[in-house]
Amino acid sequence: MNGGPLDLRQVTAPGDVTPELRQALIGCWIEVTNAGGAAGFPFPPIDASQAAPAVDSLIEGLAPETSRLMVASINGDLAGWLNVRRDPSEVVSHWATLHHVQTRTSLRGRGIGAALMNHVRDIARDEMGLEQLHLAARGGVGLEDFYGRLGWKEIGRWPGALRLAPGGDRDEILMILTPL
């Protein structure tokens, strides 16, 4: 993938996901997971037999009020993506959680993840009417530093909550972005 302008867009309905985008999401998820990324599958390597059902479930759940997909592309090729989901219950509908923040491994360090995070912040505030965003990050891989540079604050840890291999426990770091 060559350089070019970064295109950021959101997808809010299952019918808006083309077969090409679906395949690109599956491919990115496999790539990121197999490179050791904290993207939802604990035991790499994975292949399409694991990633495709997860992508399909995420796509099926898209809805403007509760679940949106943020996509970053360069020259029409997927560069990264994330999912933002909120619970419609009135008690917690003022915040949402980010899931599966991913950037193609060959494009890391080019600001794509930061651009996605800033884009979702604007969408969450301006279109979804949210006041807070939450996320859980895997400890020990520098994610808290990345998110911290973008204004996120650590609000708690679950020590050893994630078992990635025998003897490979990691903390789960709870983070918040507020106000948006």
Rank of each mutant, 00 (worst) to 15 (best):
A54C: 07
G61K: 13
G80Y: 04
C28L: 15
A48E: 13
L69A: 12
L69V: 08
H99A: 05
N75T: 06
P19V: 13
V17M: 11
A63Q: 15
W29C: 10
N83P: 00
R68W: 09
P19Q: 12
P44Y: 09
A48G: 03
Q23I: 03
P64S: 13
I74N: 05
V91G: 07
I46N: 06
T66S: 11
S57H: 09
V71L: 01
V17R: 10
S49Q: 10
R22V: 02
G109C: 10
A72C: 08
S93C: 11
E60Y: 01
E90F: 14
P64H: 05
L107S: 14
R68V: 15
A38D: 08
R85P: 03
R86H: 04
G40S: 05
N34G: 09
A35R: 00
T66Y: 04
L107I: 12
A96Q: 01
R22N: 05
E31P: 00
M70F: 14
T66K: 12
I30Q: 11
A38V: 01
G109S: 12
R110Y: 02
S106H: 11
V71Y: 01
P44N: 11
T105N: 01
A24W: 00
L25K: 08
V84A: 10
R68I: 14
L21E: 11
A79M: 06
A96K: 02
H100S: 14
D16I: 00
R68G: 03
R86C: 10
H100I: 10
P45G: 04
H100C: 13
C28A: 09
V55Y: 04
I30A: 07
P42V: 07
A24L: 01
V101L: 08
R85V: 15
V32A: 04
S89Y: 12
V71A: 00
P45R: 02
A48C: 01
T97L: 08
P44C: 11
D87C: 11
E90A: 14
G61I: 06
N83I: 09
G15E: 15
L107Y: 10
A63H: 15
V32Y: 02
A52P: 03
E31T: 01
S89K: 15
T103D: 00
N83K: 10
G15L: 13
E31I: 04
L98Y: 02
G36R: 11
A35E: 02
L107T: 12
G80R: 02
T33W: 06
I30L: 12
S73V: 05
L107N: 07
E20H: 06
A52H: 09
P42N: 14
T18C: 07
L25Q: 07
C28N: 04
P19D: 14
S106I: 13
T97F: 06
Q23T: 12
H100K: 15
H99M: 07
A96W: 00
P19K: 11
P19Y: 08
D56V: 03
L62D: 03
G61R: 15
Q23M: 04
I112T: 12
Q50W: 09
M70I: 07
A38C: 08
D56R: 05
A54K: 14
I30V: 15
A48P: 01
C28Y: 00
V71R: 01
S93P: 01
V32T: 07
G27K: 06
V17K: 06
L107R: 15
F41M: 02
D87G: 05
I46P: 00
T18S: 15
R110V: 04
